[in-house]
Amino acid sequence: MSDSGSDGEAGESFGQEVPPLVHLLKDILERYPEGGQILKELIQNADDAGATEVKFLLDARENVYGTERLVKKSLRKYQGPALYAQNNAVFQREDWDGIQKPYRSVKKDDPMKVGKFGIGFNSIYHITG
């Protein structure tokens, strides 16, 4: 009988597995309301980055860009309406690291930052492919 209290071998390590990224993102999307929340998150991220200007441009045009020069024909369905977001802050390495780590905020220890939970930027998946 092993001391571990399980059917595994003595000394066998135990640990929880991390769910696939797609499952994490699905969970984030289920928690976020659709609509203006995405704009709010982009503004908060710009503020956290020190931006003093944030601009949005909605291009609702369809079939104006052509599809003959796309890398893949399957990208044709993405040629259409678009929301462009721009701010005047410089994207830092920390920002890049942060958007790659759902639920692990790189801002949590900074009291001057709005983003604390590591989920805000991922709300943009509501409006992307």
Rank of each mutant, 00 (worst) to 15 (best):
M1Y: 08
M1L: 08
D3F: 11
S4V: 00
G5S: 10
G8T: 07
E9G: 02
A10T: 10
G11V: 00
G11Q: 00
E12R: 10
S13P: 08
F14G: 03
G15V: 06
E17P: 01
P19S: 12
P20E: 14
P20R: 11
L21C: 01
L21K: 10
L21S: 04
V22W: 13
V22T: 14
V22S: 15
V22D: 13
H23D: 15
H23L: 15
H23I: 12
L24F: 07
L24A: 10
K26A: 15
D27M: 12
D27I: 02
I28Q: 02
L29W: 06
R31F: 02
P33F: 06
P33M: 07
P33K: 14
P33A: 12
E34C: 03
G35N: 15
Q37H: 12
L39T: 04
K40D: 12
E41M: 12
E41I: 03
E41R: 11
L42P: 00
I43H: 00
Q44V: 01
Q44Y: 14
N45K: 07
A46W: 01
A46K: 02
D47Y: 13
D48S: 03
A49L: 00
A49H: 05
G50F: 09
G50R: 06
T52F: 02
T52M: 05
E53I: 09
E53R: 10
E53H: 11
K55P: 00
L57W: 09
L58D: 01
D59R: 03
A60R: 06
A60T: 09
R61P: 04
E62M: 00
E62H: 04
N63A: 11
N63P: 00
V64Q: 07
E68I: 00
E68A: 02
R69V: 02
R69N: 13
R69A: 05
L70G: 07
V71S: 10
K73Y: 06
K73L: 02
S74E: 15
L75D: 07
R76K: 15
K77V: 12
Y78C: 01
Q79H: 03
Q79M: 12
Q79R: 05
G80Y: 01
G80T: 01
G80N: 03
A82S: 11
Y84M: 06
Y84G: 05
A85L: 01
A85Y: 09
Q86K: 13
Q86T: 10
N87V: 00
N87W: 06
N87Q: 03
N88M: 01
N88V: 00
N88K: 00
A89R: 04
V90M: 09
F91I: 14
F91M: 13
Q92K: 15
Q92L: 13
R93A: 15
E94R: 15
D95M: 10
W96D: 06
W96I: 14
D97L: 13
D97C: 10
Q100Y: 11
Q100C: 15
P102E: 07
P102I: 04
P102D: 05
P102A: 10
Y103T: 05
Y103E: 08
Y103D: 01
Y103H: 13
R104P: 04
R104A: 13
S105C: 14
V106K: 06
V106A: 11
V106R: 07
V106M: 08
K107N: 14
K107W: 15
K108G: 04
D109I: 05
P111S: 13
P111L: 08
K113M: 04
V114T: 14
V114P: 02
K116W: 09
F117Y: 11
G118N: 09
I124H: 02
Y125R: 09
Y125A: 06
I127W: 03
T128F: 04
G129R: 11
